[in-house]
């Protein structure tokens, strides 16, 4: 696990910790909305990659929210446009 990956997992878990304390019906959507609104595609891309590799260390609420997190387009497409 790379350093920045560890940081990303930590950040995602912090967000999950907050929403865990909110009413249960809003929790997963809360995490997803927050990540959609504030995480740059690179960060979301890495998060998805980590989840695809088993999502080790992630709060279960992040995994639950994953389905609602917007999946960014592939990195290559962005570079080509630059």
């Amino acid at each position: 696990m790379s350093d920045t990956n560890a940081k990303l997992i930590y950040m995602a878990n912090q967000i999950a910790t907050f929403f865990q304390s909110q009413p249960a019906r809003e929790a997963a959507q809360g995490v997803a909305t927050h990540i959609n609104k504030y995480w740059e595609p690179r960060m979301r891309r890495k998060l998805f990659k980590h989840i695809e590799h088993g999502g080790e260390g992630l709060n279960p609420l992040v995994l639950e929210a994953a389905a609602k997190i917007r999946r960014p387009e592939a990195a290559e497409a962005v570079i080509n446009r630059g």
């Binding site: 790379s2 350093d3 920045t4 504030y38 995480w39 740059e40 595609p41 690179r42 960060m43 960014p72």
Partner: peptide
């Protein structure tokens, strides 16, 4: 239409090479 990097994220991305 996508949010960009915040300062700490910029620094992380820099260390990472992107």
């Amino acid at each position: 239409n996508e949010p960009g990097l915040r300062i700490p994220n910029m620094l992380d991305a820099a260390v990472e090479g992107t």
